[in-house]
Protein backbone atom coordinates (compact mmCIF):
# COMPACT_ATOMS: atom_id res chain seq x y z
CA UNK A 1 0.00 0.00 0.00
CA UNK A 2 1.31 3.44 -0.93
CA UNK A 3 2.56 6.07 1.48
CA UNK A 4 0.26 8.62 3.07
CA UNK A 5 0.15 11.82 1.14
CA UNK A 6 -1.91 14.93 1.17
CA UNK A 7 -2.94 16.94 -1.85
CA UNK A 8 -4.55 20.32 -2.42
CA UNK A 9 -7.47 20.48 -4.81
CA UNK A 10 -10.13 22.93 -5.95
CA UNK A 11 -13.77 21.97 -6.14
CA UNK A 12 -16.24 23.54 -8.52
CA UNK A 13 -19.34 22.36 -6.80
CA UNK A 14 -23.04 22.81 -7.55
CA UNK A 15 -25.03 24.59 -4.83
CA UNK A 16 -28.81 24.69 -4.94
CA UNK A 17 -31.35 25.43 -2.25
CA UNK A 18 -34.24 23.19 -3.15
CA UNK A 19 -35.99 22.47 -6.43
CA UNK A 20 -37.18 26.07 -6.95
CA UNK A 21 -33.73 27.63 -6.70
CA UNK A 22 -31.87 28.00 -9.99
CA UNK A 23 -28.54 26.87 -8.53
CA UNK A 24 -24.96 27.87 -9.28
CA UNK A 25 -21.38 26.62 -9.16
CA UNK A 26 -19.23 27.60 -6.23
CA UNK A 27 -15.46 27.35 -6.28
CA UNK A 28 -13.94 26.06 -3.06
CA UNK A 29 -10.29 25.22 -2.48
CA UNK A 30 -9.68 22.19 -0.26
CA UNK A 31 -6.24 21.83 1.28
CA UNK A 32 -4.58 18.82 2.91
CA UNK A 33 -6.75 16.06 1.54
CA UNK A 34 -5.53 12.62 2.64
CA UNK A 35 -5.07 10.53 -0.51
CA UNK A 36 -6.21 7.41 1.34
CA UNK A 37 -9.59 8.97 2.03
CA UNK A 38 -12.52 8.37 -0.25
CA UNK A 39 -14.14 11.05 -2.37
CA UNK A 40 -17.05 11.30 0.05
CA UNK A 41 -14.69 11.47 3.02
CA UNK A 42 -13.06 14.42 1.30
CA UNK A 43 -16.48 16.08 1.11
CA UNK A 44 -17.08 15.29 4.80
CA UNK A 45 -13.73 16.83 5.64
CA UNK A 46 -14.68 19.95 3.70
CA UNK A 47 -18.12 20.07 5.31
CA UNK A 48 -16.63 20.02 8.79
CA UNK A 49 -14.59 23.06 7.84
CA UNK A 50 -17.57 24.82 6.28
CA UNK A 51 -19.69 24.23 9.36
CA UNK A 52 -17.02 25.69 11.65
CA UNK A 53 -16.78 28.70 9.34
CA UNK A 54 -20.55 29.26 9.64
CA UNK A 55 -21.12 28.24 6.07
CA UNK A 56 -23.71 25.77 4.84
CA UNK A 57 -22.38 22.24 4.33
CA UNK A 58 -22.71 20.63 0.90
CA UNK A 59 -25.49 18.06 0.95
CA UNK A 60 -24.99 14.79 -0.92
CA UNK A 61 -26.70 11.42 -0.68
CA UNK A 62 -24.74 8.51 0.75
CA UNK A 63 -25.16 5.66 3.17
CA UNK A 64 -23.35 2.32 2.95
CA UNK A 65 -20.12 3.76 1.57
CA UNK A 66 -19.18 0.43 0.10
CA UNK A 67 -20.87 0.49 -3.27
CA UNK A 68 -23.94 -1.58 -2.61
CA UNK A 69 -26.86 0.55 -1.39
CA UNK A 70 -27.01 2.81 -4.44
CA UNK A 71 -27.63 5.93 -2.36
CA UNK A 72 -24.65 7.95 -3.49
CA UNK A 73 -24.52 9.35 -6.97
CA UNK A 74 -22.99 12.54 -8.25
CA UNK A 75 -21.28 13.70 -11.40
CA UNK A 76 -17.53 14.04 -10.98
CA UNK A 77 -15.93 15.87 -13.89
CA UNK A 78 -19.01 15.19 -15.97
CA UNK A 79 -19.08 11.43 -15.34
CA UNK A 80 -21.67 9.72 -13.12
CA UNK A 81 -19.78 8.36 -10.07
CA UNK A 82 -16.52 9.70 -11.51
CA UNK A 83 -14.02 7.97 -13.72
CA UNK A 84 -13.42 4.80 -11.70
CA UNK A 85 -14.46 1.77 -13.71
CA UNK A 86 -17.23 -0.34 -12.18
CA UNK A 87 -17.49 1.66 -9.00
CA UNK A 88 -19.74 4.08 -7.20
CA UNK A 89 -18.53 7.48 -6.10
CA UNK A 90 -18.31 6.29 -2.49
CA UNK A 91 -15.66 3.81 -3.67
CA UNK A 92 -13.64 6.41 -5.52
CA UNK A 93 -10.46 7.32 -3.67
CA UNK A 94 -8.57 10.58 -3.60
CA UNK A 95 -5.38 8.83 -4.68
CA UNK A 96 -6.97 8.90 -8.14
CA UNK A 97 -6.48 12.67 -8.20
CA UNK A 98 -3.38 14.84 -8.42
CA UNK A 99 -2.23 17.73 -6.37
CA UNK A 100 -3.58 20.94 -7.90
CA UNK A 101 -6.54 19.31 -9.68
CA UNK A 102 -9.79 21.18 -10.16
CA UNK A 103 -12.73 18.81 -9.81
CA UNK A 104 -16.24 19.63 -11.03
CA UNK A 105 -18.99 18.13 -8.88
CA UNK A 106 -22.66 18.24 -9.89
CA UNK A 107 -25.87 16.37 -9.19
CA UNK A 108 -27.22 13.71 -11.56
CA UNK A 109 -29.13 15.60 -14.21
CA UNK A 110 -32.27 14.23 -15.86
CA UNK A 111 -35.76 15.49 -16.58
CA UNK A 112 -37.22 12.92 -14.21
CA UNK A 113 -34.90 13.87 -11.31
CA UNK A 114 -35.54 17.05 -9.35
CA UNK A 115 -32.73 18.53 -7.28
CA UNK A 116 -33.51 18.40 -3.58
CA UNK A 117 -30.46 20.18 -2.22
CA UNK A 118 -27.01 20.77 -3.70
CA UNK A 119 -25.90 17.38 -5.03
CA UNK A 120 -29.00 15.43 -3.98
CA UNK A 121 -31.75 14.52 -6.42
CA UNK A 122 -35.15 12.91 -6.09
CA UNK A 123 -34.97 9.47 -7.71
CA UNK A 124 -38.42 8.36 -6.61
CA UNK A 125 -39.58 7.86 -10.23
CA UNK A 126 -37.40 4.74 -10.22
CA UNK A 127 -39.51 3.50 -7.31
CA UNK A 128 -42.67 3.99 -9.34
CA UNK A 129 -41.28 1.88 -12.14
CA UNK A 130 -40.62 -1.01 -9.76
CA UNK A 131 -44.07 -0.59 -8.25
CA UNK A 132 -45.51 -1.00 -11.73
CA UNK A 133 -44.29 -4.59 -11.93
CA UNK A 134 -40.70 -5.12 -10.84
CA UNK A 135 -41.55 -8.15 -8.70
CA UNK A 136 -43.07 -11.60 -8.77
CA UNK A 137 -46.56 -11.56 -7.28
CA UNK A 138 -46.33 -14.12 -4.52
CA UNK A 139 -47.77 -13.58 -1.08
CA UNK A 140 -45.93 -14.66 2.05
CA UNK A 141 -46.49 -18.33 2.84
CA UNK A 142 -47.39 -21.25 0.67
CA UNK A 143 -44.32 -21.18 -1.56
CA UNK A 144 -43.24 -24.61 -2.83
CA UNK A 145 -39.95 -26.13 -1.69
CA UNK A 146 -36.96 -24.12 -2.85
CA UNK A 147 -35.70 -27.08 -4.86
CA UNK A 148 -39.06 -27.93 -6.44
CA UNK A 149 -38.14 -26.10 -9.63
CA UNK A 150 -34.54 -26.51 -10.80
CA UNK A 151 -33.06 -23.50 -12.54
CA UNK A 152 -30.24 -23.94 -14.99
CA UNK A 153 -27.08 -22.57 -13.44
CA UNK A 154 -26.19 -20.32 -16.37
CA UNK A 155 -29.68 -18.78 -16.36
CA UNK A 156 -29.51 -18.19 -12.68
CA UNK A 157 -26.06 -16.62 -13.00
CA UNK A 158 -27.27 -14.35 -15.75
CA UNK A 159 -30.30 -13.40 -13.66
CA UNK A 160 -27.87 -12.53 -10.88
CA UNK A 161 -25.85 -10.34 -13.27
CA UNK A 162 -29.01 -8.36 -13.92
CA UNK A 163 -30.10 -8.37 -10.29
CA UNK A 164 -26.79 -6.77 -9.30
CA UNK A 165 -28.28 -3.36 -10.25
CA UNK A 166 -28.15 -1.09 -7.20
CA UNK A 167 -30.74 1.38 -8.47
CA UNK A 168 -28.42 4.37 -8.19
CA UNK A 169 -29.77 5.91 -11.39
CA UNK A 170 -26.37 6.64 -12.95
CA UNK A 171 -27.53 5.08 -16.22
CA UNK A 172 -30.18 7.78 -16.49
CA UNK A 173 -27.70 10.53 -15.75
CA UNK A 174 -25.31 9.25 -18.42
CA UNK A 175 -27.91 8.84 -21.17
CA UNK A 176 -28.37 11.68 -23.67
CA UNK A 177 -32.11 10.87 -23.62
CA UNK A 178 -32.18 10.46 -19.83
CA UNK A 179 -33.70 7.03 -20.37
CA UNK A 180 -33.99 4.51 -17.55
CA UNK A 181 -33.82 1.60 -19.94
CA UNK A 182 -30.81 -0.14 -18.40
CA UNK A 183 -32.48 -0.01 -14.99
CA UNK A 184 -35.82 -1.29 -16.31
CA UNK A 185 -34.31 -3.96 -18.52
CA UNK A 186 -32.19 -5.33 -15.66
CA UNK A 187 -35.31 -6.09 -13.63
CA UNK A 188 -37.28 -7.42 -16.60
CA UNK A 189 -34.36 -9.58 -17.63
CA UNK A 190 -33.77 -11.02 -14.15
CA UNK A 191 -37.34 -12.29 -13.96
CA UNK A 192 -37.56 -13.29 -17.60
CA UNK A 193 -34.64 -15.65 -17.06
CA UNK A 194 -36.15 -17.40 -14.06
CA UNK A 195 -39.02 -19.87 -14.33
CA UNK A 196 -40.64 -18.21 -11.32
CA UNK A 197 -40.87 -14.94 -13.22
CA UNK A 198 -42.34 -16.25 -16.46
CA UNK A 199 -45.97 -16.21 -15.35
CA UNK A 200 -46.09 -12.42 -15.35
CA UNK A 201 -43.47 -11.78 -18.01
CA UNK A 202 -45.82 -10.13 -20.47
CA UNK A 203 -47.59 -7.80 -18.10
CA UNK A 204 -44.35 -6.89 -16.37
CA UNK A 205 -42.51 -5.65 -19.42
CA UNK A 206 -45.46 -3.65 -20.67
CA UNK A 207 -46.35 -1.98 -17.39
CA UNK A 208 -42.80 -1.11 -16.47
CA UNK A 209 -42.20 0.46 -19.85
CA UNK A 210 -45.43 2.41 -19.63
CA UNK A 211 -44.49 3.72 -16.21
CA UNK A 212 -41.02 4.69 -17.37
CA UNK A 213 -42.59 6.85 -20.08
CA UNK A 214 -45.13 8.32 -17.68
CA UNK A 215 -42.37 9.37 -15.27
CA UNK A 216 -40.71 11.50 -17.93
CA UNK A 217 -37.71 9.31 -18.73
CA UNK A 218 -36.60 9.33 -22.36
CA UNK A 219 -36.47 6.45 -24.84
CA UNK A 220 -33.53 4.21 -25.48
CA UNK A 221 -31.90 4.94 -28.82
CA UNK A 222 -28.87 2.71 -28.31
CA UNK A 223 -26.22 5.19 -27.24
CA UNK A 224 -24.81 2.52 -24.93
CA UNK A 225 -23.19 4.97 -22.56
CA UNK A 226 -25.27 3.60 -19.70
CA UNK A 227 -23.31 0.38 -19.61
CA UNK A 228 -20.05 2.26 -19.17
CA UNK A 229 -21.55 4.46 -16.45
CA UNK A 230 -23.03 1.57 -14.49
CA UNK A 231 -21.06 0.97 -11.31
CA UNK A 232 -22.14 -2.67 -11.35
CA UNK A 233 -21.33 -3.06 -15.04
CA UNK A 234 -24.84 -4.26 -15.87
CA UNK A 235 -24.68 -5.20 -19.53
CA UNK A 236 -26.80 -3.81 -22.34
CA UNK A 237 -27.51 -7.40 -23.38
CA UNK A 238 -30.32 -7.02 -20.87
CA UNK A 239 -31.76 -4.28 -23.04
CA UNK A 240 -31.69 -6.72 -25.93
CA UNK A 241 -33.57 -9.25 -23.83
CA UNK A 242 -35.99 -6.52 -22.79
CA UNK A 243 -36.68 -5.81 -26.45
CA UNK A 244 -37.39 -9.47 -27.16
CA UNK A 245 -39.68 -9.66 -24.16
CA UNK A 246 -41.43 -6.52 -25.27
CA UNK A 247 -41.99 -7.88 -28.74
CA UNK A 248 -43.38 -11.14 -27.37
CA UNK A 249 -45.66 -9.31 -24.99
CA UNK A 250 -46.91 -6.96 -27.70
CA UNK A 251 -47.71 -9.91 -29.96
CA UNK A 252 -49.39 -12.02 -27.33
CA UNK A 253 -51.10 -9.20 -25.51
CA UNK A 254 -51.13 -8.46 -21.84
CA UNK A 255 -52.40 -11.88 -20.89
CA UNK A 256 -49.95 -13.47 -18.50
CA UNK A 257 -48.62 -16.69 -19.89
CA UNK A 258 -50.22 -19.84 -18.63
CA UNK A 259 -53.71 -18.44 -18.27
Amino acid sequence: MSEHETINITLKVWRQNGPEDSGRFETIPVADVDTHSSFLEMLDFLNEKLILEDKEPIEFDNDCREGICGTCGIMVNGIPHGHGKGMTVCQLHMREFDDGDTIVVEPFRARAYKVIQDLMVDRSPLEKIIQAGGYISVNTGGAPDGNAVPVAQEKSEEAMDAAACIGCGACVASCPNASAMLFVSAKVSQFALLPQGRAEANTRVLSMLQEMDACGFGNCTNHRVCEAACPKEVSITHIARFNREFLKASLFGRMPMGE
Binding site: V138, G141, A143, N147, V149, P150, S156, A159, A163
Partner: peptide
Protein backbone atom coordinates in the same frame (compact mmCIF):
# COMPACT_ATOMS: atom_id res chain seq x y z
CA UNK B 1 -36.80 -23.41 5.74
CA UNK B 2 -39.89 -21.42 4.80
CA UNK B 3 -37.70 -18.38 4.24
CA UNK B 4 -35.69 -20.05 1.50
CA UNK B 5 -38.86 -21.24 -0.23
CA UNK B 6 -40.35 -17.77 -0.04
CA UNK B 7 -37.26 -16.08 -1.43
CA UNK B 8 -36.91 -18.54 -4.31
CA UNK B 9 -40.55 -17.89 -5.25
CA UNK B 10 -39.82 -14.15 -5.26
CA UNK B 11 -37.06 -14.66 -7.80
CA UNK B 12 -34.03 -14.29 -5.55
CA UNK B 13 -31.16 -15.62 -7.73
CA UNK B 14 -29.45 -17.86 -5.19
CA UNK B 15 -26.32 -19.68 -6.25
CA UNK B 16 -27.08 -23.05 -7.87
CA UNK B 17 -25.32 -26.29 -8.71
CA UNK B 18 -24.90 -27.46 -12.31
CA UNK B 19 -27.99 -29.63 -11.95
CA UNK B 20 -30.07 -26.56 -11.21
CA UNK B 21 -30.60 -27.14 -7.48
CA UNK B 22 -29.67 -24.65 -4.79
Amino acid sequence: NNIIDQCVAQGVPFAREYGGLL
